[in-house]
């Protein structure tokens, strides 16, 4: 009986944990999307007002933003400084590839980001600013969608985790 009780507890715990983990993905995605917008706004300022060079601007912003987005910026800036022979687009997409696991981005977010990387640094100031603003707009839309999805699924997965665990435990008792 004691063993059965312990088993049930373990099942409930694990299932709760899985539920929380699944719910966390939705939260993390919205958080990352909003951090990304902040970082891009700062990049716009760096380009428009200070004409900072891209590698140093990326590293500076990355260090102050932190999180997955910060690492994405830092890694890209670092790649450009170290491996002189990468293009910006190559460095950006290689960083995105390396950080895929910690960024929680969905395919649609990644599509926007890859398009952004292709243009980064390779046009005049006006063009860059226009492109950053366009990307910001698209990201804002994605963030709104992500929020709606989060509201829907976050609670659901969390409850599903606990309730599913309890149901399974009862069945096995």
């Amino acid at each position: 009986m004691v063993i059965k009780l312990i088993n049930s507890c373990v099942i409930i715990l694990i299932s709760t944990f899985i539920g929380l983990e699944l719910a966390r993905r939705y939260v993390a995605r919205t958080r990352e999307l909003s951090a990304l917008q902040g970082a891009l706004s700062r990049l716009e300022t760096e380009i428009l007002h200070y004409a900072s060079h891209l590698p140093e601007a990326l590293i500076r912003i990355g260090e102050s933003v932190g999180g997955g987005t910060g690492r994405l910026f830092c890694l890209t800036g670092q790649t450009l400084t170290d491996k002189k022979k990468f293009t910006v687009a190559e460095a950006w997409s290689s960083s995105l590839g390396q950080l895929k696991r910690e960024l929680f981005f969905q395919q649609e977010d990644l599509d926007i980001l890859h398009r952004f990387g292709n243009q980064l640094g390779s046009s005049d100031r006006e063009g860059q600013v226009r492109f950053i603003r366009l990307t910001l707009l698209q990201l804002r839309e994605e963030e709104q969608k992500a929020r709606m999805i989060r509201d829907k699924y976050e609670k659901m997965y969390r409850n599903l985790g606990i309730l599913g665990g309890i149901a399974l435990a009862i069945l096995l008792l």
Binding site: I47, A51, S52, H53, L54, P55, L80, K84, K85, T87, V88, G121, S122, S123, D124, R125, G127, Q128
Partner: peptide
């Protein structure tokens, strides 16, 4: 040529509007 342009502008073509 694409790589050369990025390298000589330090990946920051936008910072060289006047020069371009």
């Amino acid at each position: 040529t694409q790589k050369l342009l990025q390298l000589i502008s330090d990946y920051s073509l936008y910072a060289f509007d006047e020069e371009i």
